[in-house]
């Protein structure tokens, strides 16, 4: 049995007096495309910050690639696309190439410069997300959907094994969201990346994900899309803490 990419056991976390995560135990298997859903304030972003090592849990242990996250040396094995990515400084005059190149900074290390091979990797990452023709454009001049693709390319350029995406489709129109999911699906199936996607867009996500987790302070559900689809309005009302009506499109 392969080591899970992420493993969390007995995780508790508070912000001040407010309990955000209560005894979380779960694993992300190698190669999974996991969707993480739940209400606002349910602890999804906190869970991600813990996996990334930006916060420390009060209790429990977080293992990433079999090592405690705080001791993980090759952090470039994790790619991250932030919720804030679409609210970055649009006036920042950086080209698509420069932004994607910044994804290699940590992997290269201090006092090292981009080699020919690194430059090739940058072009490949841009091509992977279908944005080659925009390489020399300033990122601020692109649409929201295109910018998100560039942030995916930045996460991909260091060839990470795990990619974490925190609500990457907020503010993007339906057509671009669909293309975005197709790209993630390709990364999962063709490039064998392990993906953890935080989203509210459960309808589209269930078409592509292999695992779904519902989080509202505690873990309410962990199963495959078929099992998720069989949840009733009563189940969702319990998870979300208020009455929920299911809408499909």
């Amino acid at each position: 049995m392969t080591t899970p990419v992420v493993s969390m056991s007995n995780i508790n976390f508070h912000y001040g007096s407010r309990k955000v995560l209560d005894n979380i135990n779960f694993e992300i298997p190698d190669g999974a495309f996991m969707g993480l859903v739940g209400p606002n304030g349910g602890g999804k972003t906190t869970l991600i910050r813990l996996i990334l090592g930006l916060e420390k849990p009060e209790t429990g242990e977080i293992m990433v690639f079999g090592q405690p996250i705080q001791k993980l040396k090759n952090k470039d094995r994790i790619g991250f696309v932030s919720q804030k990515a679409n609210s970055f400084n649009k006036g920042f005059p950086a080209t698509v190439y420069e932004v994607v190149a910044s994804g290699l900074t940590a992997q290269l290390g201090y006092f090292r410069f981009l080699s020919k091979k690194d430059k090739q990797k940058i072009h490949e990452a841009i091509a992977q997300v279908g944005m080659t023709e925009y390489t020399k454009q300033n990122i601020g001049d692109l649409s929201g959907g295109q910018q998100q693709r560039i942030f995916i390319a930045r996460a991909l350029v260091s060839d990470p094994e795990l990619i974490i995406l925190d609500e990457p489709t907020v503010g993007i129109d339906y057509e671009n969201v669909k293309r975005f999911y197709e790209l993630l699906y390709k990364l999962s199936t063709e490039y064998k990346k392990t993906l953890l996607l935080v989203t509210h867009d459960t309808g589209t996500m269930t078409q592509y994900a292999t695992d779904i987790v519902c989080l509202n302070k505690t873990m309410h559900f962990h199963g495959n899309p078929d099992e998720y689809a069989s949840l009733t309005e009563a189940d969702f009302s319990q998870i979300y803490g208020h009455p929920v009506s299911l809408v499909t499109h």
Binding site: L52, G53, L54, K73, K75, D76, I78, F80, S82, K84, A85, F88, N89, F92, A94, E98, V99, A101, S102, L104, T105, A106, L108, Y110, F111, F113, L114, R154
Partner: peptide, 22 residues
Amino acid sequence: WLFFKELFTMSFDEEQATIAGL
């Protein structure tokens, strides 16, 4: 010259730079 790529990465996205371990 020595820290150009780190300064650029931090200037564009400081959170990303922190996550990457800079």
